[in-house]
């Protein structure tokens, strides 16, 4: 969209960078703060005017994380659960999104809005019936209990549907003329074309799953089945929280997300760019 200039200099560009850097610093503050806090000894945590750079650096906060709770086990649980939930959500939501955006069947729009209603009710008021369903299934403290109820994403259906609607329907018609069935059209045409949206949704689903707290707390009871957000909550006590250890744990939890984000943001913008209609 930008015009190419041999040297990247212009007043507008410098102004833009200036603006982005200013906003960027504000955006980075909490991140810097959480790193700084994670390295502080306890007596520096209470300071009324906190120092950004700790007077004494205490690396042991990071090893304390592993001493307080079985963090490694919890970490692995989160990885397993997140992988399956993300794949499940993308697969189920994209198939449904294709049907909602490309196929005609009775009740389609009503069903679609009903799915959205799933996003409009706070989890807290549904928790008891859902708890009982888990009890009847015998899924407490299991991976299937953590994973399966959360692989149905109305958010994903809606997001991918919108993207599919934006793809010129000529692709669909052309494939249909060649005798492809809807599943083939979905898989061979729409999925590759929607790569940026799938990458975006995939990453957001992964993020949501990694940070999911309420369900993870409700369906598990033993320490061996807990997931990261529940583990982090365990660092917050009734009367006292060592914020340094908490932040150390939080940073350990966040770090892989940033790596994954670096990878995804490329997919997101450098996926298959539509080449328009020929």
């Amino acid at each position: 969209m930008t015009t190419h200039r041999p040297l990247g200099f212009s007043i507008r560009r410098i102004a833009l960078h200036g603006l982005l850097i200013t906003i960027g610093i504000i955006f980075m503050l909490p991140f810097i703060w959480s790193i700084s806090t994670s390295l502080k000894p306890m007596n520096e945590l209470f300071a009324v005017r906190p120092h950004l750079i700790p007077n004494t650096i205490r690396w042991e906060n990071y090893s304390d994380v592993f001493e307080n709770i079985p963090f490694l086990r919890i970490y692995i649980n989160s990885i397993i659960v997140t992988i399956f939930r993300t794949i499940g959500q993308v697969a189920i939501a994209s198939v449904a999104a294709f049907a909602f955006s490309q196929l005609r069947f009775p009740g389609r729009d009503v069903i679609f809005v009903a799915l959205l209603a799933g996003l409009m009710v706070p989890d807290q008021v549904l928790i008891v019936p859902r708890f009982i369903i888990m009890r009847e299934f015998g899924w407490f403290d299991t991976y299937q209990g953590l994973i399966i109820p959360l692989i149905f994403s109305s958010f994903g259906v809606f997001m991918i549907r919108q993207y599919f609607l934006g793809i010129p329907r000529d692709f669909h018609e052309a494939a249909k003329l060649e005798g492809a069935n809807p599943l083939q059209i979905y898989w061979q045409i729409y999925m590759p074309l929607a790569r940026p949206a799938l990458a975006a949704f995939g990453f957001l689903a992964l993020l949501a799953s990694w940070n999911e707290f309420f369900w993870g707390l409700t369906v598990t009871s033993s320490m061996d089945m807990r997931v990261i957000p529940v583990g982090l909550a365990l660092f917050q006590g009734q009367y006292f929280t060592n914020n340094a250890v908490l932040m150390a744990a939080a940073n350990l939890a966040t770090f892989p997300l940033l790596i994954v984000f670096l990878f995804f943001q490329k997919q997101l913008v450098e996926g298959v760019a539509l080449s328009g209609l020929k």
Binding site: M159, G166, A197, A200, L204, V269, A273, L274, S275
Partner: peptide
């Protein structure tokens, strides 16, 4: 993020 994905749908 979501807008970035949406922008890719616009043919160059």
């Amino acid at each position: 993020i979501i807008f970035l994905a949406g922008l890719q749908a616009i043919p160059r």
